[in-house]
């Protein structure tokens, strides 16, 4: 009974996930007229498919070429995620193992301070960040955007990894240190190998959130460093080109699917109790 429910739910959810994506895929092969004359679902039967939507975003028709934007996005996402996962992971380990603080301001408050950076919506930080980057001469540069994104990605990594490290028994570090490691070596040799799932998940979150940041990219760049989401949104003219935007929606998730496919294999069932002995 519960087995049937389980698979029914799994199938239902999978269909729900796929439905809008397949609609986007179908729409990406439509002409403007086919979109505007009512909903159709089946290519060749209900409408004649065309590659125009795709040609428009790949530089073939001269309309727009999203590939340089994709490369920008890759550079920015890679470095912002790398910094966030490295420094965020170290900070999370520290927060999980040591006691920091000053008077009442303790570990849990520091952790909260990290995550509190995500509370403010980017719309209100746009102008201050704009002024900051202006004064640092980092407007419209990769580095500027990487720094700003890092401030948003690191909190997620810390928030996730603290819980994760808390689950790894302290005996593991203690044993490593008994064998003569200093805390950094203990972290690297004993903890890091056990942390692959946590790092993988942090990296997935960091990369996805970094990749999809629209707002900072929109405000803080002009012509040199247009990221993919900013470039896609800039295709939305007086008349919304649903066909082109649907193609872009599919196009921009392709690299992420590849990345997640590679990283996801590290998400194996762990359970650390066995590792102590």
């Amino acid at each position: 009974m519960s087995r049937i429910f389980k698979y029914a739910f799994v199938i239902f959810w999978t269909l729900f996930v796929l439905a809008p994506l397949s609609w986007a895929l179908v729409t990406s092969f439509k002409t403007p007229a086919a979109v505007n004359q009512g909903a159709t679902f089946i290519p060749w039967v209900q409408f004649d498919p065309t590659l125009d939507g795709w040609k428009d975003i790949l530089g073939i028709s001269g309309y727009a070429n999203l590939i340089p934007n994709m490369i920008n996005s890759m550079i920015i996402t890679f470095f912002a995620s790398l910094i966030s996962v490295t420094l965020g992971g170290l900070a999370a380990y520290g927060l999980s193992r040591f006691r920091y603080g000053w008077k009442y301001y303790g570990n849990s408050d520091i952790i909260f301070f990290f995550i509190a950076q995500r509370i403010l919506p980017p719309v209100v930080l746009a102008i201050p960040f704009f002024l900051l980057l202006k004064n640092l001469r980092l407007l419209d540069t990769h580095l500027g955007l990487i720094l700003v994104l890092t401030s948003g990605l690191m909190p997620i990594v810390v928030w996730l990894m603290v819980d994760f490290f808390n689950q790894i028994p302290r005996e593991i570090d203690e044993m490593a240190m008994l064998e003569g490691c200093n805390p950094l070596q203990a972290f690297r040799r004993a903890i890091l190998p056990l942390s692959k799932p946590g790092i993988a998940i942090s990296a997935i979150f960091a990369v996805i959130f970094g990749w999809n940041d629209l707002f900072f990219a929109l405000v803080l760049t002009f012509t040199e460093v247009k990221t993919l989401p900013a470039a896609v949104v800039a295709l939305n003219g007086t008349v919304t080109p649903f066909w082109t935007l649907a193609a872009s929606a599919i196009f921009s998730i392709l690299p992420l699917i590849g990345f997640v496919f590679v990283v996801e294999r590290y998400l194996a069932k762990g359970g650390f109790s066995g590792a102590v002995r």
């Binding site: 729409t27 990749w211 999809n212 989401p229 649903f242 649907a246 872009s248 997640v260």
Partner: peptide
């Protein structure tokens, strides 16, 4: 399981502002 896991993660990968336009077209 791995296939489902990957499929279920795809929505997270889409850019919210672009996906919103797809939802509007739906």
């Amino acid at each position: 399981g791995r296939l489902f896991r990957l499929i279920w993660l795809v929505p997270l990968m889409t850019t919210p502002s672009i996906m919103a336009i797809v939802w509007r077209s739906i």
